[in-house]
Design a protein around this nucleic acid. Structure first.
Lengths: 194, 194
DNA sequence: CTGGGAATAGAACGATCGTTCAATAAGAAG
DNA sequence: CTTCTTATTGAACGATCGTTCTATTCCCAG
């Protein structure tokens, strides 16, 4: 059962454009017509590849998170100390343009009209970057770099802080924002280093 | 020119309910029909009080920010040190249920379809809490409590952090979230105290 | 008690929403 | 060349969107 002509490519293009639109204008703010027009394929064809708008977003979010984790897992060992890893993950989060999707995930999770099944799937995804952060903090604790009482809370706060900065990806220039990310880590480290 | 029967009250009820809905479901996610139904007044009557949906939100945001600043200005002198003020303002932000509106403001500002005049008005409003934070940091610097190189950036980061935590107002219980707010300040202080 | 203006309701507008579906185009298989 | 399957379109659906407009209700001034 071989492929005939390239439909996977089309699906990828649609998902790509949709991800960009969702990131910029949110879930409710992005229409399927919008996605259709921007991707260059008919509205009906979007539904050939994706069951509905919610499922389309889930697919995008899952893909993004999987790629995110894979790339970070490959990059992480390059940094020795936990502190270095923290700085690195901050830059990594910033350079991964898909992280604003986290905001959209929150929008969907918060909205009572969202399908409960969708909500559950999204909740699992939020855990992905959190696990990466937690691994760093655990490493820092085990090497004696960090003094952390509540690992769970610290992880949550750090992730939250980076997530908040990502909201400015479309309104601030790279240099300025990058400095903010680095400074965030510096301040955060001040609160947890021994 | 006296009032006949109470219309100001009606306007207030509509704005109140709309604020709640915007906070929970965002700007695009909240419809005028929604606001009408929840407030108990007809859809047409919403337009009797407010020119359109955008103007309605601006009115809400302006009101909320004005009240916020007034209340904080009254409360602020009760705390002596800059550190105490930081803890206090965190709790204050959390207890003021209207701060999720900041997220909605960002949603509107980011969306290209938003009227540019609206965008400008909203940008001015974001400054309100930032000025409050900056005053605290300045106080801390002048008393020698804090060591801050970049006041502007520090203020921005602090405000951003609190804003991010506010996103969880509807999904986390008060106790847990309050602990997060306090812990945020503790960590932040660790990064800036002398 | 009556006329007038303010407050409110409700129907209706065209536009767009998310979604479905029948028709078509095009490469693969025989 | 025909047939089949897959990829893609475009029109159409009912629902809802933000907004407008025309009543109708109600209080107050005279």
């Amino acid at each position: 059962m071989k492929r005939h002509y390239d439909s996977d490519q089309t699906r990828k293009i649609i998902a790509e454009k949709a991800a960009q639109l969702f990131s910029q204008k949110g879930f409710a703010g992005t229409s399927v017509s919008n996605i259709s027009k921007e991707s260059g394929f008919s509205k009906g064809h979007v539904y050939y590849h994706f069951e509905n708008k919610e499922k389309l977003f889930i697919s995008i979010a899952q893909d993004a998170m999987r790629v995110w984790a894979e790339k970070w897992d490959a990059l992480s060992p390059n940094y020795a100390t936990a502190a270095a890893k923290l700085y690195a993950v901050a830059t990594f989060v910033m350079d991964n343009y898909r992280t604003p999707l986290l905001k959209v995930m929150q929008e969907l999770v918060t909205n009572p009209a969202t399908d409960p099944v969708t909500v559950k799937q999204l909740y699992n995804l939020v855990e992905t970057p959190m696990q990466a952060y937690m691994a760093i903090f655990q490493h820092g604790i085990s090497t004696g770099e960090f003094a952390i009482e509540d690992l769970q809370a610290t992880t949550f706060l750090f992730g939250n802080w980076l997530g908040a900065l990502c909201l400015h990806l479309f309104t601030m220039d790279y240099e300025t924002l990058h400095r903010m990310f680095q400074q965030s880590v510096t301040i955060f480290l001040g609160g947890i280093v021994k």
